[in-house]
Each structure stands twice: as C-alpha cells, then as structure tokens.
Write a protein that binds this DNA or RNA. Structure first.
Length: 925
RNA sequence: GGGCUUGUAGAUCAGGGGAAGAUCGUUACGUUCGCAACGUAAAGGCCGCGGGUUCAAUUCCCGCCGAGUCCA
C-alpha cells in the first residue's frame, strides 16, 4: 500500500533508482548504481568522521542561519521558536519535535498555521535515551530540530512530496554534499495518533533529516494498517520535516563526537576542570574516540550489556584491553554528558521550568541530579550555574536566557543545596543500616538499596560508597533501575469520557453565548432547540458553562408558568447544555418554545469577582515573586478562590502581605478590564505563551483578557472594572507539591465575611482569656509557660507525696512467708502517682505493692521488690487477674505491671483476690 | 495523578501499647593564668495536629498539616 507513495517524479527525473538494502531489506533511493546498502546504521558505518561531508565547517549559529535563510529564500516564512516546555499542550511536558508546536489545533485543521509554508528551528528535549548520552558520541538530550512545514488542505495545496524532496536535496547540494553519497530511505512513520509515509535522509552513514508526509490519522475503522494500528486518510495533509541542527554541524566538522562539534569550548573547559587531557590533535586519542563513535553508531547502547559489548569491540579494534579503554573513555564520556545535560538545564530553566517532584519540574530535577552526580564522580568543583553561564554565553541567539539568569542561578543553588541535603541524609541512613548488617555479617540486601533510591532518592552507587566506608559490601545488579521501574508497574490507559448525548449535540449549532458581550445582564429570552431527559439546549444563553476553573451559573428558566431550576451548565463542542432539576416527563416544554432565563446574580457576581481577583493576584504574585511564576491551576467558588503557582521556594509571610497589598491597590485603581477576541496565532505572536496560564482554550479565535498587567486567554465572566472586585483577602498559602505554591483568597463580600470570621475567632479567643485581642500573643505565651511550670511542679509534688505515702503505707503491710504485701486504694490518684508510690514501696526487696484507684474507671499498678520476685511473685499475672475482675485488662513484667477496668465497685474484690494470688505465688515456691 | 518513606529535646537520631532516651550543643560548678580537652551536675519534650480502638496510645488505625523521594 505505502510502496506507491514513494514513486516520485523527483526520483525518476534526477537519476535515482530504488534499491533494497542487502543487509536490512529496507527500500531506499540512491543515485549510486553500485550502492548495496541503505546508508543507515547498522548497515553502513560512519564515514564522515575525519572526512566532513560538506564543503565547509559550520557552528550551530551559522548552520541554523544558513538553513532558515535557505528556506526563506524559497518562499518560507521564518517563525520564532517555541519554549521547550510545551505550555500550549496538556498531553506532553516537553517540546519533542517542531511539529509539536502546531499540535493539536493546527494539525487538526481547526486553527490556521502562523505562516504557510514556514521554517523554524525548534529546540527540543528528549530524555528517553539519557543513558546513551555521552557514550554513543551522538545522543543529546537537547537538540534543535530545523524544519520546513507545509500545511495542505483539500482546498489548497502548498506543496507535498515532490517539492519537499526537491527542497531537501537542493539544500544538501547547496552545502556541497556529494550527490552519490546521499540516500533516501523509505520508512513509514507513526506517532501521536498520526501516520504517513516518511523518508529518512542519510549521508556519510548518518541520518541527518526525516521527511514525514503526515496524511493518516488513527481510526477504529481505518483500512490502512501501520505497526498494528488502523489508520484512515486525513482531510488535510502536512509536510513535517526535521533536520537535526547538531548533526549537520557534526557532519560539517567530522569531529570524533557530536559533542566536540557543537560545544567544543565548554567540553574543553570541563575536561580541564576534570583533569583530562582532551587533545583531539593527538591522532591516537582522536582515533579512539572516533572508533568508539563509529561502532556506537551501529548499536543501541542504552543497556549496560551493550555498552560492555561496545567496549570489547572498540578495544579489539584499537588493540587494547577493555579495562584500559574504559579507564580512558569513562571520564571523557562523563564530561560529554555533563556538557549536554547542562545545556538541557539551560533551556529548561531559561524557559521557566521550576524544579519539582512532579511533571516537567521532576524531569528537570532528574537531569539536574544526574548532572551533579557526574560532576561529583569527576570531582568537578565549580557550581552548576557557572557551567550554565558558559552555555548562555555560548548562545547569544537566546538573549532571554541572559535576562533570566539571576533567577536561574537562584534555582540552581537551591537545587544543589537540596540534593546535598538529601545525600547527607541518605548517607546517614545507609550507614546506620550498614552497621546493623555488619553485626550479623550480611551484605546489605538489594531491597534496602531499592528502598533507599525509591523512597529517599539515594542513587545505589552512593549507597554502595557509603556502605563501603563502614566496611560493608553491597551487591549492585546492572538491572537496578529496571527493578525499580518494575515496582511501579504500568500506567493505566486514560479513559476518554464520551458525553452521553454526544450524537444529538453533534447536530446542533453552537450556542450563542451572550454573557461575553453583556456581562451585567442577568435576564434573557431564547428558543429551545432540543431537550433530552433533563438537559435543555437553547439557541442562545446567558448561563455560563463550567470552565476555566469557574463553576457553572445557576438560575431559572421560565416558560409560561413553569419554573425550571438550572443546576448545572456544560459546554460540549460549542453547544451549551443546561442541566435542570426537573425531569423531562414532567415538563410541558417543546422544541421551539420561548423561554425566559434568569441568572442567579449573587452566585454569578461572586464567581466573577473571584475570577477577576485571580488574574489580579496572579499579576501581583508575578510582581512580588518574579517572572518565573506560572499558574499551575486555579479554582473559584462563591466563598473563595485558589491559585496554584509554580515557585521554587516557600512564599514568606512578608511576600504574601505584599501580594495582598498590591492586589488591593490594583482594585483601588479601578482599572478597566479589557477583553477582546483575537486570532489565536496573532495573539500568540503578540503576547507569547504567557497567555495560556489557565490552560489552552480550543479554537481559532481566543478571548484575550487584560486585567492590570496580566494578559491571558480566558473564557470566564469578569467584572468590568477592577474596583468592582471589592476587597481581596488572602486566606492562606500551602505547598501543594514541591515547586507549586497554592494561594487561597476571597474577594468582595466573601472577603468581608472571611475577615469577619477571623475577627470572631480572634475575639472569642481573647474573651476566653479575658484579655483584649492585642494582648493575646503575650498572654498565651504566659499561659503556656505557666502551664509547663505547673506541670513540672505537679510532677515534683507527686514525687513528694509518693515519698510520704510510701512510709505511711508500709505500716499497713501484711506479712506473709517473709514478704510484705501492701494492698491499698488511693482515691483520685492517676496512674502516674500510683506508679511513683508503687516503685517507692518496691525499693524494699521484700515488698509487693498492689495499688488501685478509681479515677476514670479503675487504675491498677503493682510492683514487686527483688526479694519478692525471687520468692516467685509475678505481679504481671496478678495485675492481669485483678484487671479482669474490674472489667478490663492489663499486664506487665514480674516486677512492674499496670492495668485497669471500668467497674469501680469491684476494687475491693480485686485487691483481696490480688493479695490471695500473691500469697499463693510465694506458697508455691 | 499514583506509589513509598517520614514527623520524639536547640541539632542529629534511638525506642516502641504499660515509668520519655542517647549523642552533640546549652548552662553551672570543678580543673586551667586563659582556652581547648576532661570531670560533675542541671536545664531543655502537648513524642506535628484532630479523631478512633483500648483499662491504658508517643507507640496501633483513620483523617488533616508538614517534610522527603520515586514513577507516569
């Protein structure tokens, strides 16, 4: 089926022939009649190392500019890059390809592209091959995907396969590539619910670009099968290309590794700091590195076993031992990885990711900690921010990183400190248990290592090291991390919620939403378009459907004399559905009926105030905390609202007060709240992705709301002026996740009520202590201090009392078989007192004390002196018996026991029985 | 979003259903010209908060609050 897709005039007109690779069997196109293999790894080894494939060398900036310029000259519009954190999407955290910029709304056809055709160089971050970075010579966590995209529809085709191939080939030739060395490999592509034919572009054994012709979408009844999934044709079709900027630079330089090609100065600097002679001019050394890269190019080395295999092959090809090779390669590879990872961190933090233990922030921390670990291995003493600074200096094309450096530096220092703390904590933990295992002569079990990593973040290598310091061995299997992964199991597939009335709604026109143009109107007339069960659809409505963290409006629909209560409102594909309390059977309502709608104004206004307040607080928080903060969620209700913000440290009370003050100042300035509908792309170009603080709205046009200096895409209902919000009172802050702070606040009447409520609490508290509120802190302090004093005094007095009672009670002792039994009721004594007295009594070797009191039921304490125990007395057993009698339980040791019960009337019985039992115990002896 | 760990003296942590511990630090005294070191003694705890189970909870169970960490 797909085979026909590749029969292009471009190939036949330019002397290409289609061949099948003798090694892998894949079909490819080449101008070289003698070529037998496809040009890709592992069928062909790298031939460009030491032998560049283009006519001159380029660095990153030069190559990027050359590419973008090349396509600009060929009618493409250059557009700016998107952030590496995919703010406009909720299905991925990081931007993984240039096409990701245009998903989902551009690729679906819902929104036109910012330009067509366009060219872009998009920084991307991919972390799945983390282990191979540095070792393979080619893997990177961060790369720029240069691309030219054309978005075609059935109405209008920009260009498709022929032109794409032409452009690509022309581009390569313009760089001076040997036409005979270029091959185009057929490779169907599928990903993210789309698929299509695809051509991989290879030169010198290196894949430098991928040309995807996206024209299929996944569908249950599709007739095209790719990789086990069914696809059908899309109405639109998209040219999705990806040219690896770093690979082009590498191919142009022919250096042993990609790292030496793209950031040589930083690699050299770090090599120096690690004490490694990185002399690429040294032929022998350069040969080792390039042999390693060549052979690594042929295999997947993400697994440890494969890495060992690579070492073996490289060692034998250069005539040395695996050990010797490893000792040379490992530090070098680590420096490469550090250089790559710090560039990744530069992009992540430069684009505003805040480290966290969830979501994108977690990925940032993962990379960061990995980097710190590697720096530790090499004993590189400088701080992360110094390396990041090198990258920023190296990337003048990204001035925004320089602008954010102060924040980035602060974040990095925080994270370094945090990791140091974690390691220190972990070191203590592992050494503690190491000492435990040392005593029994065991090794530390694997389970313990897994727990240390999984629950405490201590990498197994560090556990091993810490254990070795106290002389305990540790077995660390190669499969360690996959064992951890197994523990977590698989993620369950997401359930797609299907709206129950989706079929019927599909046939209805989008509802006219009146609340945007007339935010203050609370009554309207409309025509009933459809009704199913207790769901009503009108042609237009003032009812706000739930969305953007704002709950639905409530209110009434009136038809003649019937009043229907609207209790929920939802919007499905542009159709607003009113959910009413009454059910259909009881309704006298038909399609076409005229209804009058009345909004519950109090509820709506409370929501509007809280919603507008949310934008104000967000604005104020940005001013106080910095530009890095980003809304991570928000929810409004009638009584309060909350806003979650990404921030890398706790918000202090002072900052909170300032946020509150600035918020209220914005209110008092009574600024106009502006809203306008804008073309999505225009809005993005004008305001950037800050627009999507509250999530990404669908559609070609989006509503842009300006409150103070806050500009966001927002579909909520708002006050027309900030003054109408009324007072804003911050209620509290909490840390909802590491890196995410939540602020709760109330606005308008709700704020007044909140203040009144906290006033009431304060007043009640002050009244309880008979003081005025301003004296409260001092008074409480005094009370608490006195309470502690009294407690101590009380304990001291009980000691004294016990001491006195001991002498008095000794006189009432009954002597049996050479031991003295004291059995007494001490009214109102608590267990603490009983214990003190009993212990005092039992200081005499021959005394057994059985004491009871009737405080809160019955308390029993018994003790026995050493001599009595030798005689066979076991007060544990005695107390158990006595406690049963009073309806409870108890027990203890032979010399000391406690118990109790619920029936005070049996105390005497219990004491008599207890005494008898003690007698028996000595008699038995 | 899910999993795991964790909260005890100023700090670091033991302990664990029946008398709240250790080490360091603090204070006082001794020793010293003085300091360090040493010796002796003392002070310092709502055993995170709120419920439940129990005769009895710092300990077990549940909820909340806080800290840490892994995964998607």
């Amino acid at each position: 089926m797909l085979e026909d897709e590749y029969q292009l005039d471009f190939f036949s007109n330019n002397g290409f022939i289609r061949k099948q690779c003798q090694k892998c069997g894949v079909f490819f196109w080449t101008r070289d009649l003698d070529r037998k293999t496809c040009g890709d790894a592992p069928c062909d080894p790298y031939s460009f190392i030491g032998n560049p494939v283009f006519k001159k060398q380029y660095d990153l900036a030069e190559m990027r500019e050359y590419f973008l310029n090349f396509f600009e000259e060929r009618d493409h519009t250059r557009i700016g890059r998107y952030p590496v954190i995919a703010r406009w999407r909720d299905d991925i955290y990081l931007t993984i390809a240039s096409i990701a910029d245009f998903q989902p709304f551009v690729t679906s056809g819902e929104v036109p592209p910012p330009a067509n055709p366009l060219t872009i160089s998009q920084p991307c971050i991919r972390l799945p091959d983390l282990d191979a970075v540095g070792r393979s010579g080619r893997h990177l966590t961060t790369f720029e995907m240069m691309a030219h995209h054309a978005f075609n529809t059935n109405d209008k085709e920009i260009y498709w396969k022929e032109r794409t191939m032409e452009l690509c080939d022309e581009f390569l030739m313009s760089l001076g590539a040997d036409p005979m060395a270029v091959t185009y490999k057929e490779e169907p592509w599928a990903g993210g619910g789309n698929a299509g034919p695809c051509v991989e572009v290879l030169i010198g054994g290196l894949e430098v670009a991928t040309l995807v012709f996206m024209n299929l979408k996944q569908s249950k009844d599709g007739d095209i099968m790719i990789k086990g999934e069914a696809y059908s044709k899309m109405d639109n079709y998209i040219v999705d290309t990806g040219y690896g900027l770093e690979r082009f630079v590498w191919a142009s330089k022919g250096s042993p590794t990609i790292y030496d090609a793209i950031f040589p100065s930083i690699v050299n600097e770090l090599m120096g700091l690690a004490g490694i002679d990185h002399e690429l001019d040294n032929a022998e050394y350069a040969y080792i590195l390039s042999q390693n890269a060549r052979l690594a190019g042929l295999m997947d080395i993400s697994e440890k076993a494969n890495l060992l295999e690579l070492r073996k092959q490289v060692a034998s090809s250069i005539g040395t031992t695996v050990e010797k090779l490893t000792s040379i390669m490992e530090p070098v590879e680590t420096v490469y990885a550090i250089t790559d990872h710090t560039r990744c961190l530069t992009f992540m933090f430069g684009d505003g990711i805040i480290p966290s233990n969830v979501k994108a922030g977690y990925l940032a921390r993962l990379v960061l900690r990995r980097t710190l670990r590697m720096m530790r291995d090499l004993d590189i003493k400088i701080s992360l921010s110094e390396i990041v600074k090198m990258h920023i200096n190296n990337l003048p094309e990204y001035p925004e990183f320089e602008d954010n450096f102060e924040t980035i530096e602060d974040i990095l220092h925080h994270e370094e400190q945090k990791f140091a703390d974690t390691l220190e904590r972990g070191r203590r933990m592992i050494q503690k248990s190491a000492i435990h295992y040392k005593k029994s002569g065991e090794k530390i079990p694997l389970d313990k290592l897994i727990e240390m990593y999984d629950s405490h973040g201590i990498p197994p290598e560090i556990s091993k090291e810490a254990a070795a310091e106290v002389g305990v061995e540790v077995d660390l299997p190669d499969t360690f991390y996959s064992l951890v992964a197994d523990k977590h199991g698989k993620a369950e597939a997401k359930e797609i919620k299907e709206y129950p009335y989706a079929d019927r709604i599909e046939n209805l026109p989008p509802t006219k939403r009146l609340f945007y143009d007339e935010p203050n109107r609370m009554e309207f007339e409309a025509v009933v378009l459809d009704i199913f069960d207790n769901h009503i659809v009108l042609d237009s409505t003032l009812f706000y459907p739930e969305g953007g963290g704002q709950p639905a409006d409530h209110g009434k629909l009136v038809i003649d004399n019937d009043v229907l209560h609207v209790i929920d409102v939802q919007m499905i594909h542009g159709v607003v559905v009113h959910n009413i309390k009454e059910i259909e059977d009881e309704l006298h309502i038909r399609k076409g009926d005229l209804v009058i709608g009345k909004i519950n104004e109090k509820r709506r206004m409370a929501h509007a105030r809280h919603h507008t307040a949310t934008h104000i607080v967000n604005d104020a928080a940005k001013k106080v905390l910095g530009d890095h903060i980003w809304q991570a969620g928000a929810q409004k209700s009638e009584s309060h609202a909350r806003l979650d913000l990404s921030h890398y440290k706790r918000i202090t009370t002072e900052e909170l007060n300032e946020i509150e003050m600035i918020s209220n100042q914005i209110v008092m300035e009574n600024q106009r709240v502006n809203s306008e509908w804008m073309d999505r792309t225009d809005a993005e170009q004008a305001y950037g992705f800050r627009l999507y603080q509250g999530g990404v709205p669908p559609g070609k046009n989006i509503r842009i709301l300006k409150v103070g200096d806050d500009i966001e895409a927002c579909g909520g209902t708002h006050c027309t002026n900030t003054g109408l919000v009324g007072p804003i009172k911050i209620l509290k802050t909490e840390r909802v996740q590491d890196g995410v702070e939540r602020i709760e606040y109330a606005a308008g009447e709700a704020a007044v009520r909140a203040v009144q409520e906290s006033d009431r609490i304060l007043r009640d508290s002050a009244n309880a202590l008979r003081v005025t509120p301003e004296h409260l802190p001092l008074t409480i302090d005094r009370f608490f201090g006195e309470w502690k004093e009294f407690k101590k005094e009380n304990a001291r007095l009980k000691d004294e009392l016990a001491h006195a009672l001991v002498h008095k009670m000794m006189r009432g002792a009954v002597e049996i078989n050479g031991i003295r039994i004291v059995a007494e009721i001490i009214t109102h004594a608590d267990s603490e007192e009983l214990i003190k007295i009993a212990l005092g009594l039992a200081e005499q070797d021959d005394v057994v004390a059985l004491l009871a009191s009737s405080l809160e039921g019955v308390k029993i304490v018994a003790t026995a002196g050493k001599g009595a125990i030798e005689q066979g007395v076991d007060v544990g057993k005695v107390v158990r018996e006595m406690s049963h009698i009073v309806g409870g339980g108890g027990g203890g040791r032979p010399d000391m026991a406690q118990g109790g019960g619920i029936d005070p009337s049996k105390i005497d019985d219990a004491l008599i029985n207890g005494t008898e039992l003690v007698k028996e115990q000595c008699a038995i002896k």
